[in-house]
Design a protein around this nucleic acid. Structure first.
Lengths: 331, 331
DNA sequence: TTGTAGGCGTTATCAG
DNA sequence: CTGATAACGCCTACAA
């Protein structure tokens, strides 16, 4: 039988209340009794029962990590970074693959809250709608919510976002340096960040005095086939181009293949940039120049925010991470 | 304030014990009172407090999913499948990225158990050593442990494995059909399953009456660079070959590239087979023939096992999943 | 079939 | 600074 707080109390000749005090680092304990109790705790290898604790505090040292699908490498990386950091702080992470539909998001959320999690982290801008359309944030003012790449206005909402504007600026500048001016963008999702990336592209082009026509944006499905599709449509459109920026690596790789099939050489004829710095971008040929959106930094920043929030300290509500353009052989 | 079992009791004019009984589907409740209580439960939207429950039962409806790193697509897929299935059963999944070292595995394990999880699922044969070298399985006889691709002998250990023998047989047979006989294998990890795959290769070759010399196995690091390395060493070795089976897709893709650089065409000169049916295998060129090890099926089978175990029903201790060879353009 | 009462392991309040 | 004692919400003998 595992020892309880009473066993410790008896062994140390104090009351259970005193044991509880040293357990929770309350100041009102004399150094002497504190030592005595700590010795016994160590000796009996006592660990407070988390359920009894939770029954009183209504909160457990666990957070929820919600993403639509952890198989998406970008989310897997972020979840990984978060989990590792949280574990160091003594928190566990419950994984939620919500699939992205509104009801499912909400259901997970309610279950997490019901189970007394100390916070929830939402990966991706998909969660924008869910929280936008419910009052869940204000319903649970004492639970902090953390968003990656998604900003929401609420006392208990905190965000870490990647600076997409900057990312597209980096892409466009790099291409210009390489002598390109006829640059296209392939958008592969209508999510908030997908739309933001596309408009950032236009901005970056404009800032450089280049053609920033919406015609230069092609919208396709995400993934390999979306990429081949994009190239077909680009070529059919007769729009002159020497470079393409894709909203995702896999889409870019599809594009790469189809460009080759059209007899176009990358990077000699056409330059290509991907997005996400996934493992696939390193092992296609040519290897893809791509945007690294720093999932590890995003993850640990969010956990930092979380920590300051649970400690009740003042903290930023919105942090922005600067992306990096990884130069490889496709530009 | 959330209603407690007492609120329900008062509202339904019964005792709290009766409410508890209907909550737990105990037979000893009259239909009439049951209905009455259930009506109130629904009306007040009552949800039993999980901590109070756990305080008594010492167990929560949560399982641990341990992998060395969820960023590895194969583990992400399995974890995904498990989480979705477990969620349907009312269980949450806590994600653990142990990194794979012995102490870390053990630490996670103890924390999970401490927190009263109802079971733990371990992904990959890496966990073999951890459990082999500890008595943790027998220390916690009432906690069921589930292993994917790893078999351990214990009353509370259950395994679902992929039939690697079969997989390599499929690979070799397919290559023979395509007219190959000089087949090499590239091993990229010394894990249990890595070793098993290599020896299965030898077996498959032998069964087909082909040369099954250990010389035909090349051992390299896992990943893209391991693949290029492998091809260099193969070519330097002067061993004649017309086909290579790689132990992982990314390694195979590295090999693909280097073969091309050596002026060898795939599949015309050399056939290549990968392993894991990862997304990368679909978007390299040529697209990779690869082994699909059915992570979705593995995941849901394990959850099925879990369910029958918690329900106390008799169940298999070891299930084997048949892999499938996905034919694409590299063979 | 139903109710009473005690216990699960902590924390918090209130005296002392 | 320390010790009783009452919650916290549910489950389960034991009684009725």
């Amino acid at each position: 039988m595992k020892p309880s707080i009473y066993d410790i109390a008896r062994e140390a000749n104090v009351s259970s209340a005193t044991v509880s005090r040293v357990l929770n680092n309350k100041p009102s304990v004399s150094a002497h009794t504190r030592n005595k109790v700590e010795e016994v705790i160590k000796r009996l290898n006592f660990q407070p029962n988390p359920f009894a604790r939770a029954l009183v505090s209504k909160r457990i040292p666990t957070v929820g990590i919600m993403s639509i699908d952890v198989r998406i490498p970008h989310y897997a990386s972020t979840a990984f970074a978060m989990e590792r950091e949280l574990f160091k702080l003594g928190y566990n992470s419950v994984l939620c693959n919500t699939g992205g539909d509104y009801d499912s998001n909400l259901k997970y959320l309610h279950i997490l809250i019901e189970k007394g999690i100390s916070g929830v982290m939402c990966l991706g801008s998909v969660f924008r709608d869910t929280f936008w359309n419910t009052s869940i944030l204000s319903e649970f003012p004492d639970i902090p919510f953390f968003f990656s790449n998604c900003v929401l206005q609420s006392d208990n909402a905190y965000s870490v976002i990647i600076d997409e504007r900057k990312a597209l600026k980096l892409c466009v500048s790099h291409l210009i340096e390489k002598g390109h001016s006829q640059i296209l963008y392939v958008k592969d999702t209508e999510s908030y960040s997908g739309i933001l990336k596309a408009s950032s592209f236009l901005h970056a082009m404009e800032a450089k005095g280049l053609c920033h026509d919406k015609e230069n944006i092609f919208t396709v499905n995400r993934g390999f086939d979306g990429g081949t599709d994009a190239v077909d449509r680009i070529i059919n459109s007769k729009i002159p181009f020497t470079a393409i920026i894709f909203g995702d690596d896999i889409t870019a790789i599809g594009g790469l293949k189809r460009l080759k099939e059209h007899g176009l050489s990358v990077p000699n004829d056409i330059a290509v940039i991907g997005y996400n710095n996934s493992i696939a971008s390193t092992c296609c040929s040519p290897a893809l120049t791509t945007v690294d959106n720093k999932t590890d930094i995003m993850g640990s920043l969010i956990v930092n925010l979380f920590q300051t929030v649970v400690e009740g300290r003042q903290t930023a509500k919105l942090l922005t991470v600067t992306p990096e353009l990884i130069l490889r052989d496709s530009t």
